[in-house]
Amino acid sequence: MLDELFTISTLVGILHSCVRLATPYLFAALGETFGQRSGVLNLGVDGIMLMGAFFAFYAVFEGHNLWVGVLVAIAIGVLMGLLKAFVSVTMQSLQGISGIGLYLFGLGLSSLLFKTLIGSVEGVSGFRQLAIPLLSDIPGLGHILFNHNALVYLAYLMVPLSWFVINRTTLGLKIRAVGHNPEAADTLGVSVNGVRYATLMIGGALAAVAGASLSIGLQNVFQENMTNGLGFIAVALVYFGSWRTVGVLGGSLLFSLVNALQLWVQALDIPVPSEVAVMMPYIMTIVVLAFTARQIQKPAALARSYERGE
């Protein structure tokens, strides 16, 4: 039985699953990274994802283009980010708890809108698998990497893009400064609150696209609470990646890999109790981090509100 797991086609299958599964985590965790690098913890990612998932789905359900759906999700995500920013930057509220408030609000509102506007679980035709010419013909690797829907590619494009924005642009410099030492950044004329508003809006947009990647990309339906807490895992993965985009990529891939592996192990009837299999992704994430974690410097001002002239 076990040798079945190590055939080329199975390994390709596992990695293919892994790459796809990581999509929503990548979007959401990269978005959260922006916020945390500027010093704001947003635990409300799951709520934003649900709102994004719903609005993207609703737009497509109403007959609009898929990309319009994505744009609608982005707009909603920005609005949710603004709400979070207002509450935790302007009103300087406890960031973790306001995140939970945002989560409940998004969870409730998306379900409510779904019940009012759609009323029953329906399917739409979402993003189709889009094999990239030539590249997808590479044996093995082609299928693993280049045979997915457009939002999957977009998620991976966001990794270098986020890295570039955070590490190589003025905005990124400001983000890091604000997250590390808001007082000093303020002295240098950086608007601390302005930067935090910006990162939360970026984070909101990415979280909403993460939701859209489920409702019009990977599943093509909307159901109440369809994220099932995925947003919280995404926040955890930011810590796994210790606030670095590459680390976040690694965390998302690891978590997804173990998940893909456990699904394959079960499907191939390899005698591992499914009760154990379904716990593996969570256990492995903790174990791997426990072995690799060093005392990595977190953004010094993480979760601290900033008020001028104090």
């Binding site: 709520g47 709400l83 509450v87 009103m91 300087q92 509220s93 406890l94 708890i97 306001s98 939970i100 408030g101 945002l102 989560y103 409940l104 609000f105 998004g106 969870l107 409730g108 509102l109 998306s110 379900s111 409510l112 779904f114 019940k115 109440e224």
Partner: peptide
Amino acid sequence: PSALAIALQGLVVLFVVSSDLYVR
């Protein structure tokens, strides 16, 4: 729908957590 109750809770949390600013 039960979702309304959840959304209301969310609003309550957001408002209560914001009201803290005044006290502080």
